[in-house]
């Protein structure tokens, strides 16, 4: 997806350490991973000062507890690194943001902060797609919820018109023709939330 970033597409991957961030690189360098299009590189050369400033701004905006922009990614706690990654993507002003399991294994405080950040982004008119298996989380932040089960995508339900029981039923594959018991190969169910 080399040009996806340039088109205004942001992505928070499921795996923080190793995919969303390079464990042995500093936060400033990890900023460059996806944000280099945003004036952090010029004529093919990295502007290290600008990258550091970007990282420091992310740390400040999202209240990341880290030993500065030069701290290596793996020295951060899971929640703080996740805040940094979400912040890094949000601060690039995407038009679409996909967040996979954005609060997996993150402490309660950081999780609340990340959810609020996603809501703020929605309010700013950005399309946000959250992929999660935590129904509580989806009901907290989503406007519409759809389910993938047995390789099929259900239609999206407005949050106000549905409840956890119905989504749970959808996750068992009830909307797929032939029902839950005719499945020939297992595929994990999951829910998508559309802000």
């Amino acid at each position: 997806m080399p040009r996806s970033g340039a088109l205004g597409f942001g992505f928070v991957p499921e795996e923080r350490l190793g995919r969303g961030a390079v464990p042995d690189m500093s936060l400033a360098e990890n900023t460059l991973l996806t944000a280099h299009r945003h004036a952090l590189a010029r004529h093919g050369f990295v502007r290290h000062g600008a990258a550091r400033d970007f990282a420091l701004a992310t740390i400040a905006d999202f209240n990341v507890k880290a030993g500065g922009a030069q701290a290596v990614a793996r020295s951060l706690s899971g929640g703080n690194l996740q805040k940094f990654i979400v912040g890094r993507e949000i601060r690039q002003h995407p038009r679409v943001l996909v967040a996979a399991q954005p609060t997996w294994g993150v402490d309660v405080g950081a999780a609340a902060q990340i959810r609020q950040a996603l809501l703020d982004l929605r309010d700013a008119g950005v399309a946000v797609l959250v992929i999660s298996e935590e129904l509580d989380e989806l009901f907290e932040i989503c406007d519409r919820i759809a389910v993938i089960a047995q390789g099929r995508l259900s239609e999206a339900r407005p949050r106000a018109d549905t409840h956890a029981g119905e989504i749970g039923l959808l996750m068992s594959g009830s909307f797929v023709a032939g029902g839950a018991h005719s499945e020939r190969h297992f595929s994990p169910a999951g829910a998508l939330g559309l802000d």
Partner: peptide, 10 residues
Amino acid sequence: LAPAAANYAG
């Protein structure tokens, strides 16, 4: 350092 991160970053 991290092939998966490189893949993520395109």
